[in-house]
Design a protein around this nucleic acid. Structure first.
Length: 860
RNA sequence: GCCUGGGUGGCGGAAUUGGUAGACGCAAGGGACUUAAAAUCCCUCGGUCCUUGAGGCUGUGCGGGUUCAAUUCCCGCCCCAGGCACCA
């Protein structure tokens, strides 16, 4: 019988589905394990990145299931978002219809991969029964001051006609459509993530199951810094300019003041002055400059003198005030004291405008001359020109100067964060409506809880014109005020889709709960937190930080009992493939470049760089094609075998072929032995084996040990698969025993069954079929993970390497329990060693147990 | 520029705590089977040198260091990838 994946795979998928093999409910008797993969946006088709992500998760879920855990492994859809709206505009299809058709198709594809989801828990975030609770949480957040509205400068994409969060701008362009981002002032809803900033930071050190790298990124994103707020009094009026600095040690060297061009102070200072017009022009110009460009290293540093002075609070020296393009208005106070001698930007600026330089930090053993400096001195040193602080080390004087400023009333210690509140307003249609009402009389009023959900209306006009489609819909906007009963208007902004993905993992625990607050505390207490979360590294900051914040908010509402949502996090690498290009026809899909020729013109195809698979580069592999040609099991095992999960995976067609070959090889050896081993009994426990059979049995138990460790401790599926490959190779090496040699056949059966069981989480279909062929009646998916016998797995002999001065010179085989002194003596008595040591003094003999003997010798 | 990863054969990767570098797979070469091909099974496979051996030398981005012993630890440098915020 041949291995025909297409026949067996769908058969078993149906069986799992009919038997609801992966349905779970709370069971206090069993230990729970919540395994979650990041849910997909229903874009239309699954891609290889999904296949990889979900295969990794499925292996862990199935493994834990076999280990006896009560495994929650859900799947759903992050189904609000801009692409649906764009599709609606382009193809005149309603976002809901487009989304649901995509969901149906992708669900079929996921089922065809054989993933062990409990589909009864499927959720789709665009359904009112999901987002109604999000609206309820919004109202609660509003009542607690955690959701608030503020007028703010925002990034605006004219194409999407929508606001982008600062972090959603990629190199000055809209992260979705790459249109250049403009600035615009709007009233926006914000979540006060900064209210939890200290806790979010503190827990960065309390999540040992997260990759160090991700925690570092989040810490940097939060960006806590300690410094001082210093008052620089105006030279010829009352008042002062407040500045935040972490470098108060350089305060005596501050010779001029920089203010962000868009800072209100700029126009205040120049009001009525001759230069007012020029300044206004400069400010307008800077506003148009791209934010990212403006602050980049190489961008021209521009500034304009504002015809105003302040005073250095410590020296009393006058400091000219400039508006500058490279100072950010929304970090710190928007004003920066410039120390040209010890900050490169300030140095360049000072040179350009011929401003004074005062050295205040001297490197040890050297004297800096301000006149001759070619660049700022930014390293550590000793203070000079700094009054009573002269002679102190700059790193140690920070506290002293802070104290001095505080006692003098010239400044105070402050902590500054980089993280800003989360802007969640979107002027889009396909999102969860914000449940607020604007009343002329009462102002902003939340919708009554009993009136939730505020359902997204279906009859909207979507066009390229943009604007908020909801705002144009009179029957949606017109409402009555819940407070006074008068005429009022609904909020027409919808929520950022990151809000839905900030609590979907909670909803999976009670997906059908329809009583307030939509989350069943008892069920949540059983399942939460997520034991293992798996997804792409691209979500290292935003999604993960927002989810952490939202969890803490829900905790404080008493909805949930955990501080953090995800105990362990695995960030997988990207899937990459070489790009192919035709000189004339640009990027080509793999099937358009078969045989290395362009399918249109027949010219030679140019093989380009290997890059992340993407539609625009056309270097994509269609999972459907893979499944049709090789089956889901091959697709799964290849994704796992090609690289460890956290690394990028480079696609290789030949590698896929090799994975298929291995599965066929496993199938064939089982098939060949089937008749002979079908009826043999398992090996009796005390039976003594000799020779190659003994070796095979040892290999079997060693393989169980290795695969268990590789999956459990490291998620290194590639080495686990290698180990099973070795076991299968070992069975091929065994001389075929006679049909009545029950002991030999039982040994072979044990080896083959071990190979099959160990592969169940990885390639569930073929193993299910083989398991049945071997005469078992229960589902392979439900059997217990095998145990290994340490006595059987242990080696009797070991190879000891003999080195002279660290160089490999000989090997010897000794019993594992051999006396160390005897091993050393044997090494020195080795024929080769004797000849190599002739005429040398042996200084030392080092024995590393079970590994090697190193003889340290010196020639006379 | 800063932060975070990384650099091992023709290729993907392995070596878990400083102890035999290159497991496993791909590609390549050879053999068996076959009328032939495919498939399958078996063998070889870092480089180099010679005296062809159970051989010598060399080899984990480069240069140093620590150590009996370094892919692994330390210092300096080069290159690649991802992230970013000139953060005062």
């Amino acid at each position: 019988m041949k291995y025909e994946p297409l026949v067996i795979e769908e058969k078993w998928q149906k069986k799992w589905e009919d038997e609801k093999a992966f349905k779970v409910t709370e069971d206090p008797q069993k230990k729970k394990y919540y395994l979650l993969e990041m849910f997909p946006y229903p874009s239309g088709k699954i891609h290889i990145g999904h296949v990889r992500n979900y295969t990794i998760g499925d292996v862990v879920a199935r493994y834990k299931h076999m280990k006896g855990f009560n495994v929650l492994h859900p799947m759903g859809w992050d189904s609000f978002g801009l692409p649906a709206e764009n599709a609606a505009i382009e193809h005149k299809i309603h976002p809901a219809k487009w989304t649901n058709e995509n969901i149906n198709h992708m669900k079929k594809q996921l089922k065809r991969m054989g993933f062990s989801y409990d589909w009864d828990r499927e959720i789709s975030t665009c359904e009112p029964k999901y987002y109604r609770w999000e609206q309820l949480f919004f109202i609660w957040m509003y009542e607690k001051g955690l959701a608030y509205k503020k007028r703010s400068t925002v990034n605006f994409c004219s194409k999407c006609d929508t606001v982008l969060a600062n972090e959603q701008v990629e190199s000055g362009l809209c992260w979705r459509c790459s249109t250049e981002v403009q600035e615009k002032v709007l009233d926006q809803w914000f979540f006060k993530i900064t209210a939890y900033i200290e806790e979010l930071l503190e827990y960065c050190d309390k999540l040992p199951g997260w990759p160090e790298r991700v925690m570092t990124m989040q810490k940097n994103w939060i960006g806590k810094s300690y410094g001082c707020e210093v008052d620089f009094p105006m030279a010829d009026s009352n008042g002062a300019i407040k500045v935040f600095t972490t470098r108060q040690d350089t305060l005596f060297g501050a010779t001029f003041m920089l203010v962000a061009a868009e800072h209100p102070l700029v126009m205040q200072l120049t009001k009525g002055k001759a230069i007012e017009k020029d300044v206004l022009q400069f400010v307008e110009k800077v506003k148009k400059q791209d934010k990212l460009m403006r602050t980049s290293e190489y961008y021209e540093k521009e500034g304009l003198f504002l015809d105003a002075y302040c005073k250095n609070p410590l020296t009393g020296q006058g400091m000219p005030i400039f508006a500058a393009n490279f100072v950010l208005a929304d970090y710190g106070t928007g004003c920066v004291m410039a120390v040209p001698t010890h900050d490169q930007r300030d140095f360049e600026f000072a040179k350009k405008f011929n401003l004074p330089l005062i050295v205040v930090i001297q490197p040890k053993g050297k004297t800096l001359d301000a006149e001759k400096m070619a660049e700022a001195y930014v390293d550590e040193g000793i203070l000079v020109n700094s009054g009573q602080f002269d002679g102190m080390e700059n790193t140690k004087v920070l506290e002293a100067i802070a104290d001095f400023l505080e006692t003098q009333g010239k400044g105070k210690r402050t902590i500054q964060y980089r993280l800003r509140d989360w802007g969640i307003s979107r002027q889009r249609y396909w999102g969860a409506p914000i449940p607020m009402i604007n009343c002329d009389k009462c102002g902003i009023v939340p919708v009554d809880e009993k009136d939730l959900p505020v359902v997204l209306p279906e009859n909207v006009k979507l066009s390229t014109e943009g604007g908020s489609p909801l705002a144009a819909l009179k029957e949606f906007v017109d409402t009555t005020c819940p407070k006074c009963g008068g005429k009022a208007a609904r909020e027409t902004d919808t929520m950022d889709t990151f809000v839905e993905s900030s609590w979907y993992f909670d909803r999976y625990c009670s997906p059908d709960c329809d009583t307030k607050p939509g989350l069943d505390r008892k069920k949540l207490d059983y399942w939460m937190p997520v034991d293992q979360y798996i997804g792409g590294i691209e979500h290292a900051i935003l999604h993960l930080l927002y989810s952490r914040f939202y969890t803490k908010v829900l905790r404080d509402f008493g909805v949930i009992g955990v501080d953090e949502p995800f105990t362990n996090l695995l960030t997988q690498g990207m899937v990459c493939k070489e790009t192919m290009k035709c000189k004339e026809h640009g990027y080509l899909f793999p099937e358009q470049a078969a045989d290395g020729k362009c399918h249109i013109c027949g010219k030679d195809v140019i093989i380009g760089k290997t890059e992340k698979m993407s539609k625009s580069l056309k270097n994509v592999i269609d999972p459907d094609y893979l499944i049709k040609t090789y089956g889901a099991d091959t697709a799964r095992i290849f994704c796992l075998f090609a690289a460890p999960p956290e690394k990028d995976l480079e696609w290789s067609d030949q590698g896929v072929e090799g994975s298929f070959r291995f599965l066929s090889r496993l199938w064939r050896i089982c098939d060949e032995y089937l008749e002979d081993i079908k009826a043999v009994n398992p090996l009796p426990s005390g039976v003594g084996l000799e020779g190659e059979l003994k070796g095979l049995r040892r290999k079997t138990h060693q393989t169980i040990r290795k695969v268990t460790i590789d999956i459990e401790d490291r998620f290194h599926f590639n080495t686990a698969i290698s180990a099973v490959m070795e076991l299968v190779n070992a069975v091929y090496q065994i001389k075929r025993p006679a049909s009545d040699d029950k002991i030999a056949l039982a040994t072979i059966r044990e080896a083959l069954e071990a190979a099959v069981i160990l592969l169940v989480p990885i390639v569930p279909h073929i193993t299910e079929e083989l398991w049945q062929m071997l005469g078992h009646k229960t589902l392979a998916a439900d059997i217990s993970w095998p145990q290994f016998d340490p006595a059987v797995a242990s080696e009797e002999e070991m190879t000891i390497v003999v080195q002279i001065n660290g160089k490999l010179r000989s090997r010897m085989t000794v019993a594992v329990d051999e006396d160390p002194e005897k091993i050393k003596a044997d090494a020195l008595a080795d024929e080769k060693i004797i000849s190599l040591l002739s005429g040398a003094n042996v200084l030392k003999v080092i024995y590393v147990p079970k590994k090697l003997v190193n003889i340290v010798a010196q020639h006379k």
